[in-house]
Design a protein around this nucleic acid. Sequence first.
DNA 1: TTACCCTTTCGACCATTGGTCGATACCTTT
DNA 2: AAAGGTATCGACCAATGGTCGAAAGGGTAA
Lengths: 206, 206
Amino acid sequence: MPSTDKYHQILDALQELLKNKNIQTISVSEIAQTAGIGKGSIYYYFPSKEAIMEALVARNYEKPLETARTLATKTSIPPFTRMAMIFQACRISSEEFSEQKTTTSTTSAQEKSFIHQKYLNHIITELKPVLTEIINQGIELGEIHFDRPAALAEIVLIVLSVKLGNTLVPASKEEIEETLQGLITLLEKGTDNPAGSLNFLTLNIK
Amino acid sequence: MPSTDKYHQILDALQELLKNKNIQTISVSEIAQTAGIGKGSIYYYFPSKEAIMEALVARNYEKPLETARTLATKTSIPPFTRMAMIFQACRISSEEFSEQKTTTSTTSAQEKSFIHQKYLNHIITELKPVLTEIINQGIELGEIHFDRPAALAEIVLIVLSVKLGNTLVPASKEEIEETLQGLITLLEKGTDNPAGSLNFLTLNIK
DNA sequence: TTACCCTTTCGACCATTGGTCGATACCTTT
DNA sequence: AAAGGTATCGACCAATGGTCGAAAGGGTAA
């Protein structure tokens, strides 16, 4: 079986390059060079350039997903608190992606979105079942009143991914804050919780 | 000034090609050939391949946006009804994009998402202000109770774009239905409207 | 008609890319 | 030492997005 050494070397290289350039402008040869291996070897570990991206996304969310899955069983913690913890974990990993050069890269501003698309997909696929489970527990506990847990989970995840990723639809800090506050309010009213009771979710932002 | 004839010929060609292939596999030469003009001419009308895509998205949503803007002033129609009408208009235009060949295109299934990203961006940017205005009117009328109209508008648009576009996070018809029903329920409870009162929004789906 | 000029059209051309391939080095195992 | 699978490589290929100088078209003024 292929060594995981080189595999991660490649991912490291891509991550490094991602800090300064958007994916479309990163060539496979460049990744190889940065990783210090031959270009051919890349294709020994990955079937395509796109697969490298996907693997990187998966690797970056491995830890938060682990955390989330563990949290799903910790029924001693209130559901909404666990939700907040999950978001927090995701947020941290999410930031590793985009240390966006503050240089206002003229055209390429939003081209980075290609990877965030993968990221959105990954988040929804992996996190939705976990969050659904937690919401279900909240419903049983009587802390959440809503009859479509899966839908609720997905809505929350979609909005959070799109807004926190902030590259699919670029917006200012204030706009993001506003939208997320709106989401919290909507959640409070929608799950029959008093206004302000979910405010701690806001900690994620900043 | 450049004739709009050729300009639209190019857009038509791209739209035609889009029916059977995903963008990444459509070459500029191909577009030129389909449009019946030389490749060089393409770059006389558009600065880049990406710009063609953006122009196509914009053109396809010109009509529904027009409709939406008109609707924004029709205060005689109830706000939620107008919202439904806008979604309906968008839905129709959205379908022109993806007459997805039913052929289960092996790998390329979700690669079409590149264009839906533009589409998401376009929808949010253009439609959010309009929808916000309508919601504001609803608030004044006392039909909607929510203190963050802009956020509400954005949340709705994000979820709708992502789920109706259905390429950023591929899902089955049933899942889409479930999520949208959840959104409607959330909207009802969140805006202090009785359960079932917004069910007519469901007409969009199918 | 001729001369001029600006717009439009073109396709050969270029640099670069993602991906392939045969060669070859490396390691165990026999 | 022979064998055979595993890993590594970079020259190579077809194709792409984009450039460019040339030239066609067409309007105007003399």
